[in-house]
């Protein structure tokens, strides 16, 4: 069981620096004004990469048991399910907010 993975200090610093660089990139891309909707796509894509880096190497999911990975994946999947199905309603209403 690899529950006790010990990362080297160098490695942890490397991960953090990668995250700092990605943070800079995500701010920098707003300066060049990518046309919508691609600006959202880029911003989310960078955030997803950062989140994956944190969960894999800071939270040690990369070395962890498969079930813990599954839990993480499941939570994201059910969040996507919730938003996906809700959008089936909110995007396709004839009147966005029914008046009362």
């Amino acid at each position: 069981m690899s529950g006790h993975h010990i990362s080297s200090a160098k490695f942890l610093w490397g991960v953090a620096i990668a995250l700092f660089i990605l943070t800079f990139i995500t701010v920098a891309v707003t300066w060049i004004h990518i046309p919508s909707p691609w600006n959202v796509v880029v911003a989310i894509a960078i955030a997803v990469v950062k989140a994956l880096i944190v969960s894999a190497f800071f939270m040690n999911l990369y070395w962890d048991s498969k079930f813990n990975v599954l839990l993480f994946v499941m939570s994201v999947a059910f969040f996507l399910l919730m938003i996906g199905i809700t959008l089936l309603d909110t995007l396709y209403r004839t009147d966005p907010i029914p008046s009362f």
């Binding site: 707003t30 960078i46 955030a47 950062k50 969960s55 800071f58």
Partner: peptide, 18 residues
Amino acid sequence: HLVDVIWIFLFPLLYLID
């Protein structure tokens, strides 16, 4: 780390809308 991950999403979604 999870608190960090949530902020990683909050930052572009709230601050970085150009």
